[in-house]
């Protein structure tokens, strides 16, 4: 058996979408009920780490629009998806108490084995605007400081695993790895939790050597964009490895035995310190009924894999 978790934002149910649209009087209790339902589903699936489904989050960056120095700007496509996020414009220095993420989570509903998701600094800067910072480097490093404060607060609140999502590292062809590293170094320094950097929306096959140098506990891969064959070529000794093979971009449910066999093969070749299986990215790209099925199969796959 290996550990497991899901990543990012979950889908709202039809009922919740309609209630949100109409601002019904029971909206708040409905959010709570649905959040509780998804947490129960993760527990039922016996996932190693349980996450808030982030149902109130309109995109992974949106809670940061609550900062005084930030103004929401135009809608933009999320990489090549048919979903849009709102760009945030940082118009002053970033003043934060580091409690933005925590205050947007259903803390009382989460069990002790809790995980949380946040964007890594390079991706954050890549997708947003700043009129205050002189250049991208400065913006990345300021964001890293902001995210570090968030991480410290979250660790104090009992989070054992922090998922750092880095789709821009996967999607962009040209990456300043020194900058990525510097940002992550600031973010993760002294943070007493596992920090796993996830890549999706692009193939990182040719970047893995450089990624293994980054100051995080582990790396996570979307196996629909980065082929398993490329991951297998590398040694992960000293690093954790998350295999994101439960696909949030198809309603087809994964074949459990095939997935278990694939993970066993990857593990035997890469020899990581610890292995996780996860979704490849946010479950919100499939409707709720399929998301619930995927959570269960994720748990089954994790339980079927040989111990590392």
């Amino acid at each position: 058996m290996i550990s497991s978790y899901t990543l990012g934002i979950y889908p709202r149910s039809e009922e919740l979408i309609e209630a949100t649209r109409k601002h019904t009087s029971n909206l708040s209790s409905l959010f709570q009920k649905e959040t509780k339902g998804y947490i129960t589903q993760q527990k039922k699936a016996k996932l190693g780490y349980v996450s808030d489904p982030l149902l109130r989050w309109d995109d992974i960056f949106r809670p940061f629009s609550q900062l005084k120095s930030v103004k929401p700007a135009a809608l933009n496509r999320i990489y090549e998806m048919n979903t849009f996020y709102r760009k945030l414009s940082f118009e002053n220095g970033i003043a934060t108490s580091g409690k933005i993420i925590k205050s947007n989570l259903a803390m009382s509903l989460l069990p002790k084995n809790r995980a949380v998701c946040m964007p890594e600094p390079y991706t954050f800067a890549d997708r947003h605007l700043s009129s205050k910072h002189k250049n991208k480097d400065e913006f990345v490093l300021e964001l890293a400081k902001m995210l570090h404060k968030e991480a410290v607060t979250l660790v104090k609140a009992g989070f054992k695993l922090i998922q750092l999502v880095g789709p821009s590292i996967a999607y962009n062809n040209k990456i300043d790895f020194n900058l990525v590293k510097e940002g992550l170094d600031i973010l993760t320094r002294g943070v007493k939790a596992k920090t796993i950097l996830h890549f999706y929306f692009g193939d990182v096959s040719k970047k893995i050597d450089k990624l293994l140098d980054l100051p995080v506990s582990g790396l996570g891969f979307d196996t629909t964009t980065t082929p398993i064959s490329a991951i297998k070529k590398h040694s992960f000794s000293g690093k954790s490895l998350t295999i994101g093979l439960v696909n949030s971009y198809t309603t087809k449910i994964e074949n459990k035995n095939k997935s278990i066999s694939e993970i066993n093969q990857i593990v035997s070749k890469t020899r990581p310190r610890e292995v996780f299986v996860s979704t490849n990215f946010d479950l919100e790209y499939i409707p709720k009924k399929f998301a619930n099925e995927k959570i269960l199969v994720l748990g089954e796959i994790a339980r079927g894999v040989k111990d590392v």
């Binding site: 889908p11 709202r12 919100e284």
Partner: peptide, 12 residues
């Protein structure tokens, strides 16, 4: 049809 998927915010 599989179900509703977000376009942006609460638009599906």
């Amino acid at each position: 049809f599989a179900g509703r998927i977000r376009s942006w915010d609460n638009k599906y």
